[in-house]
Design a protein around this nucleic acid. Structure first.
Lengths: 194, 194
DNA sequence: GTCTATAAGTAGATAGAC
DNA sequence: GTCTATCTACTTATAGAC
């Protein structure tokens, strides 16, 4: 297929998603117009509709892709439950700091999804929580952790860890490694393995 | 001053704030129109401007009032640092479950505030974090807690506790008292007092 | 694939009647 | 204090030219 004038599909597609991700995270889905996204990409608003059927699908795709990448990135290597938990904690903090916009969006904009899209994303989030809950159950059964309710503890720990994106700034008082160490100490203590 | 036809200022004012709080929490500030708020109250859109100069002030007032009420409601009675921490944990969970919309708004809609309003709310939030950090420092000094960084630990704990609003449903598997007990166990362990 | 132009609707906010 | 009516601007999305 011959290339038409001004056509740059290979780079425009990713740019649209990148601009949408950044703007949605900064100002909120409802507060961002298609024109703003187009301006950030350097095209006119109409051109966006070559890449997404509508604004809602753009948000849903961003959130679903994030959750799928997050789940794919997490690989439980098994073994000692405490070692598995430490890997999870450091993974979650690292991934959250590497992808602050996605993480922010994925728990701030669920309410702006249609019911169908919401259910799909919530299911993916549930799988991630289950991955952590499984580790906590294994630790409790092995007697190296004290966790009365693995599901509740998993949600509590994920909320605690994700919160790092609210205040961490590169170049601040603490570097990433120090922050991860602190959170690991807190998490280990929380599950009775301090 | 004689009452004009249809004037019900005493009840309309609170209703406007209540409707705005509920709708902003449900759908997001940017996604809610003044007309939607007016419809929820049972007046026309123009009437809202008798109670707020504009939409932004409505949001800022809701958030500032929430933070001030939260700070006023928390009373540190001093004494044993562990007892103070337990009171804080149970207070924060109880207050969050009593005021889910306010709590949700206060950390979801900060980005939709003007810089001035944002700074004011952030300062109030900082005071609340400091209240907890002070307890953790006292506990560490007394040797009944192990907390390497009180500020970080305070933010981590508040994020963990606030997360309860994301999943707790009245009438569900766990009641409030059980949930508070679980979170207190997690928090106590996190600060090395398990 | 991207543009321009536009349709059709909604936004926040104000003016003036009552 | 509330209403109706309205201004101006902006919204999502589409149509058709290139």
């Amino acid at each position: 297929m011959a290339r038409t004038q001004g056509s740059r599909a290979e780079i425009t597609g990713p740019l649209v998603r990148q601009a949408a991700r950044r703007l949605f995270a900064r100002h909120g889905y409802a507060a961002v117009s298609m024109r703003q996204i187009a301006a950030a990409v350097g095209v006119q608003a109409g051109a966006l509709y070559a890449y997404t059927p509508d604004k809602q699908a753009l948000l849903a795709d961003l959130l679903r892709d994030h959750m799928e990448l997050l789940l794919a990135a997490w690989e439980d290597e098994g073994g000692d439950p405490l070692a598995r938990l430490e890997r999870f904690v450091r993974f979650h903090i690292g991934y959250s700091l590497d992808h602050p916009d996605e993480v922010f969006l994925s728990y701030m904009e669920l309410r702006n999804l249609t019911p169908d899209n919401h259910a799909a994303i919530a299911a993916l989030r549930g799988r991630y929580e289950t991955a952590l809950a499984d580790i906590l159950r294994a630790g409790a059964e092995a007697g190296v952790m004290r966790v009365a309710d693995a599901r509740l503890a998993a949600m509590a720990l994920i909320a605690m860890l994700t919160g790092v994106t609210n205040w961490f700034r590169e170049g601040g008082r603490l570097d990433r490694a120090a922050v991860a160490d602190h959170y690991w100490t807190l998490a280990r203590g929380a599950v009775g393995a301090g």
